[in-house]
Design a protein around this nucleic acid. Structure first.
Lengths: 139, 139
DNA sequence: TTAAATGCAAACGATTTGCAGGCGT
DNA sequence: ACGCCTGCAAATCGTTTGCATTTAA
């Protein structure tokens, strides 16, 4: 993962600055979703005067490099490390915001079939289920 | 549809102003997606000095009343008349932006199953397939 | 009559941009 | 040394809000 990133930087004549190193360290260790504030907070503990613009520029870079995925679930944008071998979709509780990840190969196959029927080449998809989790149903 | 809307207005002590009438006329005749600019353009042909704030307030009202659905596909927000009997998902060409609507009951059933497995009560879902349409593949 | 709605402009939050100086290669 | 990168502040974009005035019921 780190290697892919550094190769990406190199092949695009991008420099591995100390800001990017810190930012990438944070991202690489995220198992779940994170916001730009999470990233900013971490970064500012390590680098003085780190500007918000750097955060935005970095996130764009990672999304373009296909190492990060951007979600807009509820209000704020969430980012997540994109791992092709570990694709998943999301089930979200509308009351408490809890996010559950799932995969379903049957649905994925059906998606391919639908794309085919419309002569599309399928590149990506986004499936979000909104509901109420068990705890919130009881309340 | 118009009746549902007027009932909604009445039961919420909302007034059927000339602005809302014009705005609703536009919305009611949309078979596909439209943007707030589409709505604004139409409305300003009929009413002088119609402010953008009125557009936003009207759209909120309709979304709350459950007569409109809001999408955030690519860049700008799209609105669409919400018809429970005609639910559908979207297949989008990433090159030309073409949007195709589809329904697939098998997928819907699988979604219910997934929600059940996680003890969620399923309320809504959003499925978007991104791909390249036939025309754009040839280019 | 009176509560809600409108237009306007100012306020707002998130994101982007231009630029002068700094830093990695 | 060169060109990319950064921090900063100003600019921008979409959207929201406060307020004085108008309008539907």
């Amino acid at each position: 993962m780190k290697k892919i990133y550094e190769d990406f930087l190199h092949s695009n004549q991008l420099k591995n600055t100390k800001q990017r190193k810190v930012l990438f360290d944070f991202v690489m260790n995220q198992k779940n979703h994170f916001t730009k504030e999470n990233l900013l907070e971490y970064a500012q503990e390590h680098i003085n005067n780190l500007g918000i613009a750097t955060i935005y520029r970095f996130l764009h870079t990672l999304v373009k490099s296909n190492l990060l995925e951007e979600h807009e679930f509820g209000g704020e944008k969430l980012f997540e490390v994109k791992n092709p071998e570990n694709h998943h979709d999301h089930l979200i509780c509308e009351k408490c915001g809890k996010i559950i990840e799932f995969t379903n190969t049957k649905i994925e196959h059906l998606q391919e079939k639908i794309a085919l029927e419309h002569h599309f080449k399928l590149l990506d998809h986004k499936l979000i289920l909104y509901g109420t989790c068990q705890k919130c149903q009881k309340k």
